[in-house]
Write a protein that binds this DNA or RNA. Structure first.
Lengths: 333, 333
DNA sequence: CAAGCTTGAACAAACGATTGCTCAAGTCGT
DNA sequence: ACGACTTGAGCAATCGTTTGTTCAAGCTTG
């Protein structure tokens, strides 16, 4: 049998309330130091550890936050998870990760938010606004959105994708590219819109006319990137801006298949940087984004919220800069 | 305020115990059907959902299992997570994912196993036996090891890495390769040993002498794979067997750097298949392993264990077969 | 019509902690 | 030496469920 407070109390010859106060380090009540020692000693001997269920029930706080991620094979999320973990640990919270694929029918939000298992939720979702809104409608706990916004709703921590896309275009344009294709994200999605806007910002700044024919929807998967790239091949872009690392990778595979050389024939650049970028051939030039920081700030924000603070909204996180690798080069003549 | 059982009871004009029985569908007690209706109606109106904390405290079961993963950027784990999720849902359990990097000082096991938050743990770990054993020593809940074994301890679900490595060697040997290098895993590790054994099995079957100079430790990261490959370059292997996808990818980057053509100069093959294999250039030939199934079986096993069954050990899961892509070809003459 | 069954539901005791209050003994000032 | 504090600890209620037990009616039976 697991030792409980009463066991420790019996062993130390005191009341459970005293044990509780000593173990929690409560200050409202003075305890003779020899009593304290006796209690601590007993707890140690019994290898006591509190039943968090009972604690949480009593205090109605779990000191746990949940993080819902829509996919694990996108490097953004592992990185954000690491950040959230750091923040959680820093505040003495536990982090509980839940996986919920886009469009899944599993009621993860409901389970977590109605089950009293977490004090708040950091939500990353690839679902469309409508669906997400419905899902979160009934949430009874505070939540913070990660890497997306939802109109009129909740706090968000997002990356400045617009700036990132714009930086990418700068890089390409500075090497003479003018036929720059864009592999776009989910149409209507927050990030997709931002990135497209940044792409257009960049073009404009360099006096390049926006050509809708050079934009194809790729979503967030390698297959999507590949399909989009295939559809753009006929347009003969000299450079391609992928909305994510993974879509850029999908595009690269298609370029290789088509017998095009990277970067001699076509330059490729991706948004977000991650270890996989170095595994591609050639290693992918990308705009590095503070994804870990994003997770960290989201968790910080949520924990503040949980503790009754009314946190300020956080501005989009600016890119960490450009990481130039082998996949981009001067425009072919 | 969240509605609780008493609220429903008051609204329906009955005792909480009756509400509880109706809502839980308990059969030991007959309930008049109009009463039942009234209760159900009230619960619906109040949008009642039970406090799982209280439930778990009372019943001392959480109907939740934990899955501890050591890394998220290795495709094996997302895949195993998916499998475990499936199994958990199938049994009506929730899955709680915890991240614990190898060598981390965070007491994840302790928190989970002593905190009464999960009924059991599926543990994947890259820590060495000694450390893992210590960590798990004090666990007060059942656990199942994922993708590794620990001498004399606990149930495991593992892949048949030995068979996988052997299949990979078959493939290479069948194309005439005889100088086959091996990028090995963590020395002393269970999987590393198995893979090395499989590699040697394969060599032997094809009458190739084992040459220790063709084996280098790469661990489980791209950098490790790259370093190992660099050290092997001088040995001029015609083919390389990476212990994982990621190490193979690291090796490929080095081969590219060195100006070697894949597969014309050197063939590369990896163990485990995952989407990233198709993103590499050339797309990586690999031995596909049932990683999702592994997660599923581990969760099944754990849930059986939690429910008092004494499950049979599970034999290593055989590979799903070879996926031939562009990274392997005939031996250069 | 009294005794014994059913039926259907209420009572009440846990589960393991936290925390506001009460209270006995010792200390101090006068 | 007596009342007023202080110190140190125990009492008991409570968090929201679950579940063994009791119990009042209504019904059957002989």
């Amino acid at each position: 049998m697991r030792p409980k407070l009463t066991d420790v109390a019996r062993m130390a010859g005191v009341d459970v309330s005293t044990v509780s106060r000593v173990l929690r380090g409560e200050e409202t009540q003075r305890i003779r130091s020899e009593t304290r020692e006796r209690i601590l000693e007993s707890a140690r001997k019994l290898n006591y550890s509190p039943n968090t269920l009972a604690q949480s029930l009593r205090t109605s706080r779990t000191r746990t936050i949940g993080l819902v991620v829509p996919q694990l094979d996108n490097p953004v999320f592992p990185s954000a998870i690491r950040g959230a973990e750091k923040a959680a640990i820093r505040h003495g919270y536990s982090l509980l990760i839940a996986h919920r694929e886009a469009g899944s029918t599993d009621a993860v939000y409901h389970r977590l938010s109605h089950g009293n298992r977490v004090d708040g939720l950091v939500v990353a979702s690839l679902d469309d606004d409508q669906l997400l809104r419905e899902e979160l409608e009934g949430a009874r706990i505070p939540f913070v959105l990660l890497n997306r916004k939802l109109a009129g709703h909740a706090l968000s921590v997002v990356l400045d994708s617009r700036a990132a896309a714009s930086i990418a275009v700068d890089h390409l344009a500075s090497m003479g590219h003018r036929r720059i294709a864009h592999l776009a994200g989910r149409p209507g999605g927050f990030n997709a819109g931002e990135r497209l806007a940044g792409y257009r910002d960049g073009l404009k700044r360099h006096g390049i006319a926006f050509d809708p024919a050079l934009v194809a929807v790729a979503g967030y998967t390698a297959e999507g990137g590949a399909a989009a790239m295939r559809s753009l091949l006929a347009r003969q872009p000299t450079a391609v801006l992928g909305a994510t690392l993974v879509t850029a990778a999908g595009a690269m595979a298609v370029l290789h298949e088509a017998g095009l050389q990277i970067p001699q024939d076509v330059s490729v650049i991706g948004l977000h940087d991650a270890p996989v970028a170095t595994m591609l051939y050639p290693p992918l030039t990308s705009v590095k984004m503070p994804t870990e920081l994003m997770g960290e700030l989201a968790a910080d924000l949520l924990i503040a919220l949980v503790n009754g603070a009314v946190p300020q909204p956080i501005a989009p996180l600016p890119p960490d800069g450009l990481v130039v690798r082998g996949s981009t080069g001067p425009v072919p003549r």
